[in-house]
Structure formats: structure tokens, C-alpha cells
Amino acid sequence: MSDGDLTIQPLFAIGPLVITNTVMTTWLISIALWLFTWLLSRRLTLQPGPLQTAVEGIVATIENAIKAVAPDHYRQIMPFIGSLWIYLVIANLCGLIPGLHSPTRDLSATAALAILVFLSTHWFGIRIQGPKSYLHHFLSPSPILLPFNLISEVTRTIALAVRLFGNMMSLEMAALLILLVAGFLAPVPILMLHIVEALVQAYIFGMLALIYVAGAIQSQQLRQSQKE
């Protein structure tokens, strides 16, 4: 392991676009998920086998978690939030595979996901509530809080990106430092912690995104219920 393991290495360039190992890993993950789901979708039956049962359990768990937060619109936001959870779990655990690095240790990737969460929050809010009703929630409970609401929108997006990036980056760095200091097999405990941390960070990122989107969707309902 060298110092280059902690840096983002460009592999090649397509015109102005530089393809880094982060993008390549993301493509590999996407292709693997596409192949897996494509093969799975061709073999779905009413009498499920063990694999189908496991996949249905995962999907049902995601659906139930989203339904608990946004019971009226869970079908609309499920693809986005569910994809976040699935992608982040796989991406975070990629660091355990020798030769691969987690895409989420790259700030560009986490920032891209955070921006998508930011945009999808407003997208779902405007789409479901309408632009006037949605934008009105920036003025609640008082127009004086408009700057704070706007700052909050930006800062929570930045926090979302930096939190995931920092945790994953620090885990890999800690494992690398222990490997350098203590030698072979010494980072195994920290790698076990990596598994837990990868699952926790994926859950936190996805749950925060869900809460943001659900908050944007249901802000009008919340105001109406508060008035009542």
C-alpha cells in the first residue's frame, strides 16, 4: 500500500471528462447491480426461492422504512431513497475488496449524491405540493427565518456530503496507518469496524435524505395540522 492509495487517481480521459478510479468503481457497481437485477427480474416467481426471498425482504424493508416516514408518497420517492441505500451499502463495502476503494471516500462522489438529494428534495416538494405552496414553507413559521432556512438548505447538503466522505475516508486512512505501523493482519479489527461503519453511514445518509424529502413533501400538511 502506498500513499497513492489514499488519492484519487485518474485512469484516462474522454475529452474534457477525466475518468478516475472512483468513477470506474461506480460503473462497476452499476453494471453489477444491473446484471444482478436483470437476471433476477427474469426469474421472479410466485413461489420464491431463497435468493428471491432475500431480495424481496430487502425491498420490503426499504419500502416499510420509507412508508413509516412518508406514508402518502412512499411509492414516488422509494426508487431514489432505496437506490441511495443500496448504492451506498455496496459502495461503502467496496473498500474491503483488495484493489478497490470506496467511491464514497471521494468528496466528488459524496458531493454529487448530496446535490442529488438537495435537488430531489425541491423536485419532489414542488412536484407534489406545487411551487407556491412548497416555496411558502421557506417563510414559515416566520418570513424572518427565510435566510436561516436557505442557509440550512445549503449547510445540511454540505454536511451530508462531508459526513459521508469524512467517515469513509477516515476509515480507510486508519486502516492504512495501522497497516503501516503494525503490519499484516493488524487492521482486521478496524476492517470489522469498517463493515459496521459502512452500513451505519449508508443508513444515515439515506435516512437523512428521506427525512429531507419527506419534510419537503409534507411541510404543507404539517402546517395545516398545526393550524388545526
Binding site: V18, S30, P79, P103
Partner: peptide, 18 residues
């Protein structure tokens, strides 16, 4: 470039999973 490609890639992934 990574930022843009990650956005596109994730949107494609959302479509694939959906």
C-alpha cells in the same frame, strides 16, 4: 468531471433499479 459523472451514473442507477 467525477462530480458530473457520478450524478449521471447515480441517475442511471436509479432508473436501472427502478
Amino acid at each position: 468531471s467525477t462530480f458530473v459523472l457520478e450524478i449521471i451514473n447515480f441517475l442511471v442507477l436509479v432508473w436501472i433499479l427502478k
